[in-house]
């Protein structure tokens, strides 16, 4: 079954989407969209370093993303520049550095388009293994850190006062994002990773009555976008990464229609009866 490139693409894409959805919720809640962009721009530097040092792409991208997020945490405390300026600085410096390093590697012929927009149809069984192991790790850590992370998202000081250690949760979240970007790069490419994080989560907002519910709905919406996008790209012969994002956008637009309200309304009137049980 794994011999078929289309099945492999489907498995890889759904694997990434299921992890990106819940994590994307935190990006939406904490308004970290630009931070996601920064990490994915930095991913190209990871690619260049992987060529230079001849190490695994995923590992190199993860390391660079992790260093960039920790650098951001450090600079936020030290520098007198606003966070969004710092993000812009880090994003484009890392991107430029990556391109310069790649230019020096004259013996390497890089398909830049593949990295920028992904090449989901070329995923190997090994890639799928990495996605599922990495994805399972990300989801487990996310479940483990969920309460402190969510509490800190709602109110940092309240979380700190009640012993939730929000600083630690914050660092863990950044490392999780670095991991997801590393494993998702091959699927949608560095320029579109943030879309896979944000769009399904934004879609889920209209359907969800609770944070956990929103995470699950985001995962489902992401998976639907992958399946829809892949079939779309097969049907119309369009590039698969961008088509997946377009499919996600389509779901988001659908969520703006009255449909979710109808669903949410049905649930709202139903919940108390179930919950009360008296």
């Amino acid at each position: 079954m794994l011999d078929d490139f289309f099945i492999r693409a489907m498995l890889a894409g759904v694997g990434v989407a299921v992890v990106a959805g819940p994590l994307g919720c935190f990006i939406v809640w904490r308004r970290l969209a630009y931070f996601g962009d920064t990490l994915s721009h930095a991913a190209l530097l990871g690619v260049a370093l992987a060529f230079l040092l001849e190490i695994n792409f995923t590992v190199a991208v993860f390391l660079v993303s992790a260093v960039v997020s920790l650098a951001l945490l450090f600079l936020q405390r030290k520098a007198t520049v606003s966070s969004d300026s710092l993000l812009g600085l880090l994003a484009h410096s890392a991107l430029a550095l990556g391109l310069v390093v790649l230019a020096f590697l004259t013996w390497v012929r890089v398909d830049l388009m593949g990295f920028l927009f992904g090449d989901i149809l070329a995923v190997s069984a090994m890639d799928i293994l990495i996605i599922y192991i990495g994805g399972a790790a990300v989801l487990s850590v996310l479940v483990w850190i969920w309460t402190p992370l969510f509490a800190a998202t709602v109110n940092w000081e309240l979380a700190e006062a009640e012993g939730m250690k929000p600083g630690r949760a914050n660092i863990v979240l950044m490392l999780l994002m670095a991991t997801v970007i590393a494993i998702a790069m091959k699927i949608v490419g560095v320029l579109l990773i943030t879309a896979m994080l944000i769009i399904p989560a934004a879609t889920a907002r209209r359907f969800a009555a609770g944070p956990e519910q929103m995470a699950v709905v985001a995962a489902i919406a992401g998976a639907m976008a992958v399946v829809g996008g892949l079939f779309g790209s097969l049907e119309w012969d369009t590039p698969s990464g961008p088509t997946i994002v377009v499919a996600a956008l389509f779901l988001f637009i659908l969520s703006l229609s009255p449909l979710p309200q109808l669903l949410a309304f049905g649930r709202k009137s139903g919940t108390p009866i179930v919950k009360e049980g008296n």
């Binding site: 969510f150 709602v154 309240l158 006062a161 009640e162 609770g210 944070p211």
Partner: peptide, 25 residues
Amino acid sequence: VGYVPQKVSIDWTLPLTVARFMHLT
């Protein structure tokens, strides 16, 4: 510790009911 901060603003992107908020931390 039970803490009631002076100001808590809940972002509209957060789907959060009172029942769920009770178990925040």
